[in-house]
């Protein structure tokens, strides 16, 4: 049990990183990584929502959709859960934890269309994870996302001092540097500790 949890975590954070090997959540990864601060905020918000969404969607899938034979409604149900969850978390934070809301607030609405979140709940179903495994996969997947976006933001802060072809300014140079970070992450592939 413990070893499967550890294997899932290691896979989600390093070997099968959501960004660099599964290509989930690229849009916010490129959009919110111009500064380390914003990247950390976005990363935290994603960890939070991915963990919660994994838990709730697992319960809905196992106790409502599958018993009723409605597995084909999974995508629809999950995206609605995620959208309302994000709304709900936003309202809750605004009222009760204003300091956290200050930090995460503006990133929350963006998360609805973050494909890493919908991706993680769909993968939970595909991999037949149980409740604990789903939650762990959600949280560690989020941590993997955060690791990737924070690392990449620190790379990006240095790009402005670099000398690159004028036509690559902005988006293209980001993609090329993301490629190099992805190359570094490839070093983790095949790693099996547990």
């Amino acid at each position: 049990m413990l070893s499967s949890i550890l294997a899932i975590s290691l896979g989600a954070i390093l070997t099968n990183n959501f960004i660099f090997s599964q290509f989930l959540g690229i849009c916010p990864f490129l959009g919110c990584s111009s500064k380390v601060d914003t990247a950390t905020g976005m990363g935290l918000a994603v960890v939070f929502v991915m963990g919660l969404a994994s838990a709730i969607c697992w319960v809905i899938d196992t106790y409502i959709l599958i018993p009723l034979g409605l597995a084909f409604l999974e995508t629809l149900a999950f995206i609605l859960v995620i959208a309302s969850l994000v709304q709900f978390v936003e309202m809750f934070l605004k009222k009760s934890v204003p300091s956290l809301y200050e930090a995460l607030g503006i990133y929350l609405p963006l998360i609805t269309t973050n494909c890493a979140v919908l991706g993680v709940v769909l993968l939970n179903v595909q991999n037949n994870y149980n409740f604990l495994e789903s939650v762990v996969y959600g949280i560690t997947g989020g941590i993997g996302f955060m690791l990737a976006i924070v690392l990449f933001a620190s790379v990006r802060e240095r790009i402005q001092f670099a000398d690159y072809p004028e036509n690559f300014e902005g988006f293209p140079i980001c993609l090329v540097s993301a490629a190099l970070v992805a190359l570094a992450f490839m070093g983790f592939s095949g790693m099996q500790i547990f």
């Binding site: 036509n167 690559f168 190099l180 992450f185």
Partner: peptide, 25 residues
């Protein structure tokens, strides 16, 4: 074969983007 890996995805799109910007400019 590295182009078939995630690295290749980022790099190829980056280069296409760069070329596009050049052409538009």
């Amino acid at each position: 074969s590295i182009l078939n890996l995630p690295f290749g995805g980022f790099l190829t799109l980056g280069v296409i983007f760069g070329t596009m910007q050049y052409a538009l400019k």
